[in-house]
Design a protein around this nucleic acid. Sequence first.
DNA 1: GATTATCGTTGGTGCGACCAACAGATTGGG
DNA 2: CCCAATCTGTTGGTCGCACCAACGATAATC
Lengths: 144, 144
Amino acid sequence: MVKALRTRATWLVSRAQVRAYSLLKEMFGAVGVRPYHYRILAALDESGPVSQAELGRATGSDRSDISVAIEALCSSGLTARQADPADRRRNVISLTDRGRSELHRLDAVLDEAQERFLAPLTRAEQVVFLQLIARLSDDEPQED
Amino acid sequence: MVKALRTRATWLVSRAQVRAYSLLKEMFGAVGVRPYHYRILAALDESGPVSQAELGRATGSDRSDISVAIEALCSSGLTARQADPADRRRNVISLTDRGRSELHRLDAVLDEAQERFLAPLTRAEQVVFLQLIARLSDDEPQED
DNA sequence: GATTATCGTTGGTGCGACCAACAGATTGGG
DNA sequence: CCCAATCTGTTGGTCGCACCAACGATAATC
């Protein structure tokens, strides 16, 4: 007996991700921004100025993709790139003031997206869900 | 104050999906199959013989993608395609015996993938998670 | 000092999702 | 009955994103 697709965790996660992403695309699109722009700005805000390679590891993207994204963000004035004097291979990327205020604007958008995404659950269920999905999204589960 | 990316539901779902998909790709790849082949075989098993368009709606894929996938599945003998006498636009797709036994083989693989994906949770937590994610993956939330 | 590793960049590839257009077939309204 | 609208399967194309390969420049390691 074969279990229905819609009872499989991996399938359900995939469908949920499609729903989440289309929500993000719709809402970020409405303000003229790509989701991965937000990802980078948020990671920068969290970590402070870092190299592009570290940024890639923080957001789970390839160095090469970060490279072109940073180029776009810098040329629209949201981030600044300056050579690291201590290690001349590195570019240190930092948020500009405009980048920071843009981030806050986008953050409000993302907040609403979370609301809409989690709307099918009660508040209490949302808390439980966040705790469980966090453990399932951990790439390297800790082995204490 | 901007919330960290790793506390956002949409981000966590996205990471979990990446983990789930790479697990599937690895395990299905080891037996020489693409994940979407399984998806179609499973949908067929569940619904019985249906048209390609219905298959697309069931699996959430485009008619055109179904078309080429079905072509591959038919030419490897896992499905059969015959014209619907009642509606000559339609191809009725059905599982062959080989397709059914292949499905069962893949089902075992998928079972193990679910195990591995859900391993970070206890059995009880897995049950809760499945119930919650199912509601979050529902594209058209019911409004009773 | 020579090998090894890391950084940023460019360019290319694969895959899945999506859209456009088409011919053939069916349905529905006037 | 007939015309318009819709649906089906197919081909072909685009787009976004992830991933890899290679390179010159630089750092770190032995």
